[in-house]
Amino acid sequence: MRGAAKRGGYLLLGVLVLLAAVAASLTIGSRPIPLGEALDALLHPSAGEAALIVRELRVPRTLVGLEVGAALAVAGVLMQALTRNPLAEARVLGISAGAATGVVAAIAFFGVASLAGWIWFGLAGAALAGALVFLVAARTRDGSGPVSLALSGAAIDAGLGAVIYGILSIDAATFEQYRFWVVGSIAGRTPAMAGQMAPFLAIGLVLAVVTARGLDALALGDDAARGLGHRIQRVRLLAAVAAIVLTGAAVALAGPIAFVGLAVPHAARALVGAAHRWVLPLSALLGAALLLLADVLGRVISPPGEVAAGVVTALVGAPVLLWLVRRARTVTA
């Protein structure tokens, strides 16, 4: 039996990796700043150039990276459990497409030209799409079970995708702005944006923790979960709300970032097994670390330009996942 001590060890490792990623994110960039100087800038605000870069650019960027990475990974765990589908991530429940539709509508119909405004449209779009998917699925025979969730999610995703491409193909000006969002990046985000995201992250994480045991039971089938005393419709509803809130906020803030929600839960399960009380916290740690490291890599890969974190996550994530697949059996939800 994988003991609690061993699993606790992996959690500690996750914390250390995340700390290293945070340090890298604060120090590495087109203007390298030694760690001591960066910490000094945090503790003793001064007007020096390095201090300004750390406080105004790197700290908000790092905070947003932490939030988005953790949110996407935890949401991935939830969606994989809800759909009993190891490939589930933000796209599967139509949430990404909802956020994208919100952003496109903001640009094309409401003339919103700043990221700060897009965030709210993206969040609203994600919430509407996610709620629609869940409500449609809840009215089917298997009552928001895995198959109906995945199917209605795929339908909404395809439908909204068509709407987005329809608008973009006749409206070049909208596309000019939209492409900055859709590439998936955590650069240029402000501390205010990080703050706006925090309550959603908190709600989502609390709901995820509350449903962890219910999801463990649901993995044994609906009857077994009922037999263990769970109200399975309520477990599914809470987990879906958590997934929608987390994904919606993350995607609205950073654009659709691939792979974190897919790969991190698999990595976490390969390390600590399938019990959600271990998988959820480890995924949050590793998701945040992966996104930060991808962002750092994007800063140094082709100076003086930057590659968006969304592009790098896929580049970094793919080999990591392949390595894990080779090393151990993949462990699905």
């Binding site: 994988r2 005393g229 399938a274 019990a275």
Partner: peptide, 22 residues
């Protein structure tokens, strides 16, 4: 139940422990 699902990556001890959930 007659046909429970077998989750992957769960050890016997972990699965039996889920019986303690109530």
């Amino acid at each position: 139940p007659q046909a429970p699902l077998v989750p992957e990556g769960v050890t016997v001890a972990d699965l039996v422990a889920r019986g303690r959930q109530p």
